[in-house]
């Protein structure tokens, strides 16, 4: 039972991160019908930027409680700029090209970002400085620490804020109009290009937050961390129903739980044949299962048909 509870906690923490990244995929998909393959790398860049900023600020003697939010803001700003640039360079010129084209440029962008990051930050794992006294709390035999609590709460707050933006503000209305019908939105005076840019920037800002969260949680950052994280967050988005914001959150949390419970119990399930090193395969099988049985995802509508 303790194991079960512990895995639930771990799953929720991991799931919150997936949900934040999945939101980025889903927002872009909702508006452009495009899978932004490079999104995972934006998460990585966010983590790396935050790490560099943090290390520098602590070196200047700044208090960690000040350095942490400052470096988060810096990372968010950097990622927003990056997201804006990616859209302008790799996607916008191809908006009317065959579908294959933006997928290929997206892969190109991922590779470029990954290798640039490797040149800048090196191949090694970077330890994330321990900044706050990270106290552990025992609940019914399971352990949860401060950082994990902060991650869950922060993710929740951010998601609620995003929902408010999308449903309550002018910008949100414009986003929904563009998602519904780009042409009609344009006719109604919405600046479609601006909305798309803003969407990319918003998604990238969330990615930066997620990047910082993962690195703080594991105490590590690495140039390759975005790849698998991106893949899983995409799975989460599909699981929830791609294009659907609530779906991304639900899918993220669910995937986190599936993964951590799966990793916790796979040994028992397979009679010791497979261990927790197979944790990363769950997401893949979830993805396949969703695509086979419910391609529209849990909360998604039927995939739009157009002719």
């Amino acid at each position: 039972m303790e194991i079960f509870l512990q895995q639930i906690i771990n799953g929720l923490v991991q799931g919150s991160v997936y949900a934040l990244v999945a939101l980025g995929y889903t927002m872009v998909y909702g508006i452009l019908g495009l899978i932004n393959f490079a999104h995972g790398e934006v998460v990585m860049v966010g983590a790396m930027l935050a790490l560099s900023a943090l290390t520098a600020m602590i070196g200047w003697g700044l208090s960690p409680l000040l350095a942490l939010p400052l470096s988060l803001i810096l990372a968010m700003a950097g990622c927003m700029l990056l997201g804006y640039g990616i859209e302008r360079i790799a996607y916008r010129p191809l908006r009317h090209a065959p579908r294959l084209a933006p997928l290929i440029t997206a892969i190109g962008v991922s590779i470029v970002l990954q290798n640039l990051a490797m040149m800048i930050w090196g191949r090694e794992y970077h330890a994330f400085p321990q900044l706050i006294a990270n106290q552990s709390h025992h609940i019914a035999g399971a352990i949860i620490n401060d950082i994990q609590i902060i991650i869950i709460i922060m993710a929740l707050v951010i998601m609620l804020a995003l929902m408010a933006v999308v449903h309550r503000t002018r910008l949100g209305r414009a986003m929904r109009a563009v998602a519904e019908n780009q042409h009609a939105a344009q006719l109604m005076g919405v600046d479609v290009n601006r909305v798309i840019s803003v969407t990319f920037m918003l998604g990238s800002a969330l990615a930066a937050i997620a990047g910082l969260m993962v690195s703080v949680n594991y105490g590590l950052a690495h140039y390759y961390m975005g790849f698998l994280l991106g893949l899983k967050a995409f799975t989460a988005a599909v699981l929830g129903g791609i294009g659907n914001l609530r779906g991304a959150m639900l899918g993220g949390l669910l995937l986190g739980l599936i993964e951590s419970l799966g990793a916790g119990y796979i040994g028992d399930l397979t009679g010791g044949f497979m261990g927790s090193q197979y944790q990363d395969v769950f997401a893949f099988f979830v993805l396949i299962a969703v695509l086979v049985f419910r391609p529209s995802g849990l909360l998604g509508e039927r995939l739009a048909e157009r002719a």
Partner: peptide, 26 residues
């Protein structure tokens, strides 16, 4: 995947490449 939009194939194959490696490694 092939009855769905092309992007899904891209992602699924991307994942498959990684899965095969996990199995080979473990």
């Amino acid at each position: 995947t092939l009855r769905l939009r092309g992007d899904y194939l891209a992602i699924v194959t991307l994942g498959f490449g990684e899965i095969i490696r996990i199995f080979m490694n473990n």
